[in-house]
Amino acid sequence: MKFNYSKHVPNTDNDATGAILAAAADPKVISLAGGLPAAELFPVEDFRASANRVFDEHGAQALQYGGAAGLPALREEIIRNFLKPRQVEGAVENIAVTTGSEQAIEQIAKMFINDGDTVLVEAPTYLCTVDAFKSFGAKIVTVAMDDDGMKMDALEEALKAHPEAKLIYTIPTFQNPTGRTMPVERREQFVKLADKYGVPVLEDDPYGAIRYSGKAVPPLKHFDKTGNVIYMSSFSKILAPGFRLGFVVADEGFIKTFTIMKQIADLHSDNFSQYLVADYLAHNDVDAHIAKISKLYQHRFELMQSLIESEFPAGVKHSNPEGGMFIWCQIPGDIDTQALFDACIKQGVAFVPGDPFYAGESESGTMRLNFSNVDDDTIREGMKRLGAAITKFLNK
């Protein structure tokens, strides 16, 4: 049967990202490709206790339909545990619970983008956001980065060249894929530029709590005085991704519209998961849990970084993140990264090639490495294989 799909469906069945992840799933391959949190740190017993309390105290309600904006108790916990510590103002009416960050990105793209509309993104940026924006027919304009994130002169140049831009998307803290973090002064300038040119900002902050060095910086939303910044985050990296819970913080009028759109999509996010997470946050020290995550990730990052310097050929550049889950590398020369990926798979190790993270022209020889979900011995063996495969590829 040949289906007559809408124009929002890609006109190709080529799934490069899926193919990469499938190859990395081979049990003979050490995968440094995924963005998975460390499963051994999931607070299983604490959630078991929360589940018992939820069934005892709210059993029928937790199994019933819920409100589209999310469980009020969970939104209160978001304010207490996440917004106040990050210096973000917000009431319950400013928050909507989402089915992970992915739903927030897709719904906001749907709300802003018509065919041909312009959106501005970092180069590189989160590959699933690129796919979401493209699915709604966006014209994606990329803005250059340096080691401190999106460059403000490049952003203003893009805003001047594209006064019709509908949205700016950014990951200013421990950016995916580069791990870079935007300093305070640049964040203040970013918000002022967005206000000046009247373009809303979608700030994606799934990794911001996982800091293991340097000084914490408040989100862009902290500097927002006009309601122009839409802030989003997730429980996936700090609690467990299986709950599929995230949240959006924005102007109350925006949240009302967002909630209507979300209701059309799924009525509401998983109600039982919301009760579980709300109970967990009310009865446990989430900061202590995040500190445990950060300590482990710092160790794994430092180990991987040291092995890049000892196992990789000379001239390989890498990012130096102060938190998050990724290291961004660039191999010198005119490198076909997909061909390099294929060569590395043959040596039993996988990474994510940089190309899918670029909405426009990609940089040669780029790759993203993940350290959060691999133990020390696996990191050592994987980096040894990767270094040998890169050296062999460069010398062929």
Rank of each mutant, 00 (worst) to 15 (best):
N4D: 14
S6D: 11
K7C: 09
P10W: 03
T12K: 03
D13S: 14
G18N: 02
A25Y: 00
K28A: 15
I30W: 00
L32V: 04
P37V: 07
A38F: 08
A38P: 05
A49H: 08
A51K: 14
V54W: 02
F55W: 14
D56H: 10
E57D: 14
G67T: 10
G70C: 02
R75N: 06
E76H: 02
I79S: 06
F82T: 05
K84A: 14
R86H: 14
Q87T: 10
G90W: 04
V92S: 12
A96V: 09
T99L: 06
Q103P: 00
I108S: 07
I108P: 02
I113K: 00
D117I: 02
T118A: 11
A123E: 13
L127E: 13
C128K: 14
V130T: 09
V130H: 03
D131L: 13
F133N: 05
F136M: 07
A138P: 00
T142G: 12
Y169S: 09
Y169G: 08
T170G: 05
T170C: 12
I171Y: 03
I171T: 12
N176C: 10
P177T: 01
G179R: 05
G179V: 05
R180T: 11
E185W: 04
R186S: 15
R187F: 01
K192Q: 14
Y197P: 10
G198A: 10
P200E: 06
L202Q: 04
E203F: 04
P219Q: 10
L220K: 00
T226Y: 02
T226I: 10
M232G: 09
S234F: 01
F235I: 07
L245E: 04
F247V: 03
F247Q: 06
F247R: 06
E252R: 15
I260N: 09
K262V: 01
Q263R: 14
N271Y: 03
L276R: 05
L281Q: 01
I290P: 02
I293G: 02
I293Y: 00
H299R: 15
S306Q: 11
L307I: 04
E309Y: 00
S310Q: 10
E311V: 06
E311I: 05
V316L: 08
V316M: 10
M325N: 09
I327S: 09
C329A: 15
P332H: 04
A343C: 09
A350Q: 04
V352H: 13
D355V: 12
D355L: 10
F357I: 01
E363L: 13
R368S: 11
L369Q: 06
S372K: 07
V374T: 11
V374L: 12
D377K: 13
T378H: 00
I379S: 01
G382I: 00
R385T: 03
G387D: 07
A388L: 09
A389C: 05
K392C: 01
L394H: 05
